[in-house]
Design a binder for these strands. Structure first.
Length: 427
RNA sequence: GCUGAGGUAGCCUAGUCCGGCAAGGCGCCAGCCUUGAAAGCUGGUGGCGGUGACGCCACGGGAGUUCGAAUCUCCCCCUCAGCGCCA
């Protein structure tokens, strides 16, 4: 996760102006420190290179002399004093480069000009609203209670077995969960996406390239005794799929539909309506992920957003789309839309989709470039990701809207083909 | 888990025993040749710094020995094969 150091040198004012929009003075200070370290490093490189050149020249003289059978002791003696100065210069060069890179990695991605200026999620800008907010038809109770009453979920026993945030799904709800996944996957496949089931565990190295380091320890589950992490979303292993490779220009835009279980520590935030499935440590998600040329990413961002909207439109769940503001957009994304579905019982819009254009920020850190066969290029592709459906939260929206007065659960019409045509679950 | 073999440029490979400018092939680019193309021939084809000439770096990563490390020593990472265990 790095921005282009070349840009810091060629147009620092542009970078500074962009970072300023994030309303965090620490970034500007960070930028100044990166630039200072970079200047010092460039000086140190020249000095270290000069000493290395001298050493190499002497080494070659020794080699040549030895080859011709001339005595070399004198020359070896003379070059014996060289290492101390060189070691010091090389140490300084390496240290400055590491310091610069450590600081550089902490700089967030550059924001797209269309990102609205604002301090937090209250200042996100609504760009689209679809459907009319509905009233709950069923008993006025949180979805968790409704699901337990139907025998569709076990929250108490889930907590006992694995702790808060874990749950058992059972019976028809399992089938409904799978129906949602298959529905979203089919929709994406019809639009040119290739389904991918990625590894659910990822090494630290690629993980650091694709996420915000500051969030890392708060969000990720680590495997004890291994440098492996449970994935928080299939976005991460999908981004790492072509780590260190040259992507053929002819193969992009490359549209992938990730299907995975995701694991998040999600510390904090548990109100009454968040109990149950709203905020959990483990959930299934169908994800859209794209590698593309830089000039395509803005249009593809809209395409991913349209796909995500289509999922909820076909489920007939009202939603709105917000353009996430500068203070809420996060480190990795250059531009982000959230789709917020209508939750009938909560009488409010809640986030169900996050749709991001990460530009070259992830791909550069992963060492991915575009090129033709046999000819690697310098252009770094853009990566984009968007939820298609994260099932637990979608299930909550469905329960809040589709539960009937008698407590049974109506199946959204679009999911019935995946449930042997059934239109009702429970009862 | 045990044993063994490996990691060299976009790809494939040599060099490692015995330390001295990383050789060759494929692909790609350009030029020559050609009516055109292919073949053939010639040159080029990584990263960093430098306006530039040029220099430095790069053989999985790190440390060490040495005037000098792809090559010797140590630590670590990863891959593959065989055996074992296992859904």
């Amino acid at each position: 996760m790095v921005i282009d150091v070349e840009l810091l040198r060629s147009d620092p004012a542009k970078v500074e102006e962009n970072l300023a929009r994030r309303r965090n003075p620490a970034y500007l200070e960070l930028l100044a420190r990166v630039r200072e370290k970079d200047s010092l490093w460039r000086v140190s490189v020249r000095e270290a290179d000069r000493l290395r050149a001298a050493r190499n020249a002497l080494g070659q003289q020794i080699a040549a002399a030895r080859k011709e059978g001339r005595p070399v002791d004198e020359m070896v003696g003379a070059s014996r004093s060289a290492p101390a100065a060189l070691d010091a210069a090389a140490e300084a060069e390496g240290r400055l480069r590491r310091e610069r890179d450590d600081l550089l990695r902490r700089l967030p991605n550059l924001l797209d000009p269309s990102v609205p200026y604002g301090k937090d999620d209250t200042e996100n800008v609504v760009v689209t609203t679809w459907g009319t907010p509905t009233e709950p038809r069923g008993p006025d109770r949180p979805h968790g209670e409704a699901l337990e009453a139907l025998g569709f979920a076990e929250f108490e026993r889930g907590r006992r077995a694995s702790g808060a945030g874990f749950y058992y799904l059972r019976g028809p709800l399992v089938l409904l969960d799978l129906a949602l996944q298959r529905f979203a996957l089919d929709l994406l496949v019809a639009r040119g996406f290739t389904p991918v089931v990625p590894p659910f565990l990822l090494r630290r190295e690629p993980y650091e390239a694709v996420t915000d380091l500051a969030d890392f320890e708060k969000v990720m589950y680590k495997i004890d005794g291994e440098e492996l992490y449970l994935i928080a979303t299939s976005e991460h292993p999908l981004a790492a799929l072509y780590q260190g490779e040259i992507l053929d220009e002819g193969s992009v835009p490359l549209r992938l539909a990730g299907l995975s279980t995701n694991f998040r520590r999600e510390i904090g935030g548990h109100g009454v309506d968040q109990k149950g499935l709203f905020r959990v440590h483990q959930f299934a998600k169908v994800e859209q992920f794209v590698f593309c040329r830089p000039e395509e990413s803005t249009a593809i961002h809209e395409e991913l957003r349209a796909n995500a909207e289509e999922v909820f439109r076909r489920l007939e769940i009202p939603y709105r789309v917000v353009n996430v503001c500068t203070g809420d957009v996060g480190t990795v994304a250059s531009h982000k839309y959230d789709v917020e579905a209508w939750f009938a019982r909560q009488r409010g819009y809640r986030e169900v989709v996050s749709c991001s254009n990460c530009t070259d920020y992830q791909a550069r850190a992963l060492g991915i470039r575009l090129g033709k066969a046999g000819k690697p290029g310098k252009v770094v592709p853009h990566t984009l990701n968007s939820t298609a459906v994260a099932t637990p939260r979608a299930l909550v929206a469905i329960v809040e809207q589709y539960q009937r007065a008698d407590g049974t659960l109506e199946v959204p019409a679009v999911l019935r083909p995946y449930l042997d045509g059934r239109d009702t679950l429970g009862g």
